[in-house]
Amino acid sequence: MIYQDSRLLLEVRGLCATVNGTEILKGLDLTVRSGEVHAIMGPNGSGKSTFSKILAGHSAYEVTGGTVMFEGQNLFDLAPEERARAGVFLAFQYPIEIPGVGNSQFLRLTYNTVQTHRGKEELDPLEFDDFVREKMKLLEMSPDFLERSVNEGFSGGEKKRNEILQMAMLDPRLAILDETDSGLDIDALRIVANGVNQLANKDNAIVMVTHYQRLLNYIVPDYVHVMEAGRIIKTGGKELAFELETRGYDWVGVEHKAATRAAV
């Protein structure tokens, strides 16, 4: 939601990045203020997922130009774990399975690590158990999730719910949801979206990266951005998503080229 007294959270200016020498982002601009919900849409290969991984600090991508400021701080000065502690959260498109590590042990370790760095109290196993069970209700997760290994043998929907559970625990300022709707059936989508909606407030912001409009029926964006060839080429309100759904992406590119030519 757009608030009058919102604060600037994320400011991306002219971001360029390569992976293995191939240029993926070519001057991306984006401004996100507290309270806002953004959707970044675009065809496959437009650089959406690359952008989300760069924000989280993935080492496979090399930033070759531009700046990203997060709450007034240069994001590129921070290691991935420091970004997480500062309040950047990435919900993965493909969450990693970690056989041999219990989910509850993992969740507690990440929670306590982040809490400590934020100068807050750690929770002992019993306190944490109460805390996490409360959060799990939000995502309609059964307690036996805690007994299993991290994501091991989880269905697609269970993995995504486990991602949003971590978001609920870690209480980020900026949550980036990378294709969170992929692989979800309609019930799981509703549960996950409902969880996200309950977590959204006027102090945090959500950036959804998605290929389809479907998710946006459940998590209603304030802004919809269209990405193509490593840049955001059009920004609109939620109605832009409907237009994309019926007309596809091509017309945005055509319109953008025409506008660019006209400007030259």
Partner: peptide, 27 residues
């Protein structure tokens, strides 16, 4: 490296992430 990154993105240091994955391998 993807597994290490996943854990780092949850706030664990690279060392803690590597330790956890090594531990899990043996566990």
């Amino acid at each position: 490296n993807e597994e290490v990154f996943y854990l780092q993105s949850r706030g664990l240091s690279e060392t803690a992430a590597r330790n956890m994955l090594t531990y899990a391998f043996g566990a």
